[in-house]
Design a protein around this nucleic acid. Structure first.
Lengths: 230, 230
DNA sequence: CGACCATTTGATATGGATCAAGCGATGTGG
DNA sequence: CCACATCGCTTGATCCATATCAAATGGTCG
């Protein structure tokens, strides 16, 4: 039911080419009262725009695979990345009717797409759905508050904090695979790519991390990273 | 009903001394379904702590008069101010059961205090209350997102942005009265007091503003301020 | 293999921090 | 009511972390 409506919608853009149609999957059989299980899968190619700032917020999204960045751009072109969303994360939820950020696929990805109006309607009758929506917004709020705390720190603290944050999202793993470029990281941390790069090199030299490939980081000494996190 | 419960609660601290008891006001007569009208007034003295980070979030607050700052402190003492709340603003709303920031009175103030559990219970049955709570959290989210955008700007842009933000909250007024110290402003903007002071002086020299008293700012050229807001 | 793009590394510049002193308003005690 | 202490703010001099400018290196894909 949801899936049929969504995959045919023209306002969803630039699906990655070589992916089998979501139509081949069975449609959701009956209304369910948990947000987690609803929606239709949708592919987006690397760097594809998922939605733009100030556009009507018709959908919300949950990542199945790949990664997404949200961002805003200032008049003069400076870009600030709001957050990196990974599999399992929900993004694009708005209380007002327009998106406050833009969203792009960092890598090819699959995303569950859910019609916002359906969820909102559901929330009007189902208390637990309303509660989930509120909690999602609150989760986002806490994330952004943490981001503010990151932005007042030194470059080393920001990078260390970023690595720990990414590591915390891959529980158990001491090695992290970064789906995003140095430019993305820099724009998330409010630094330049050069500073990010130099800081990573410094962390490597101090034996806190190992960088076997530019997008692969091994946390060699979490305690040291935590100590320099401010 | 609410008022009786709340003013006698011991966990609310440091009410300003010479204020007539809220008990003298008539209690709210019957349950109402709009958050705006509920609660009991409570005085706080300048610099009094209203609640601390990580404390149980038993109440939410709405400012009647005065001003409040919320903040977090890093290990090494750096303080980041989350927001300045002015009359009419609601603060202290949490979805989880602890406060994520601390809150202090910037000046002597009166605050409506509302038991969180009562509101949450109400939200379980009243859709419009649930919606209001969600919207308050979303309003806060947008604020914090704007704050992030502020923190990536230059000192001049931050100060100009701050002045415009404060001015927008006193609609119509071209002159703003700042309830907070330079240190508070600096900790909000992620700058030092010296930089804030110098920047204000520079703005005054460029005829964008006038500073007849240190806590009184006249916006002389809003367009210029907006232009340098980034 | 060669072109291109991402990343690292190097050299220099600079905005804001830090250190330090002066100034003005406010309040207190004599 | 005035002298003086205190506190918040401004101004000045210098320093330093990070930005900027520039070039080299490495990895990927046709």
């Amino acid at each position: 039911m949801f899936s049929e409506t969504l995959v045919s919608d023209r306002s969803l853009r630039q699906p990655a080419a070589p992916v089998k149609s979501p139509r081949s999957r069975p449609a959701v059989q009956a209304p369910v009262n948990t947000i987690e299980l609803m929606g239709a899968p949708m592919p987006f190619a690397r760097n594809a725009e998922i939605y733009g700032e100030n556009e009507p917020a018709e959908y919300l999204y949950k990542i199945v695979s790949g990664a997404v960045r949200t961002y805003k751009v200032l008049n003069d072109g400076r870009r600030q990345i709001g957050f990196f969303y990974l599999p399992g994360d929900v993004f694009g939820l708005e209380v007002g009717d327009t998106h406050t950020f833009s969203a792009e696929a960092i890598a090819d990805c699959k995303v569950m797409v859910i019609k916002r109006s359906a969820i909102i309607a559901l929330a009007a009758t189902q208390t637990d759905v309303a509660r989930q929506l509120w909690e999602m917004t609150a989760t986002e709020l806490r994330r952004v508050q943490d981001h503010v705390m990151l932005l007042i720190k030194t470059a080393q603290e920001r990078v260390a904090g970023f690595l720990l944050e990414m590591a915390a999202r891959t529980p158990g793993a001491t090695e992290i695979e970064l789906p995003m470029s140095r430019q993305d990281i820099a724009d998330y941390l409010g630094l330049t790519i050069e500073t990010v790069s130099r800081t990573l090199t410094a962390l490597e030299n101090s034996a806190a991390i190992d960088v076997p490939a530019s997008r692969r980081i091994v946390l060699r000494n979490r305690a040291a990273l935590a100590r320099m996190n401010g």
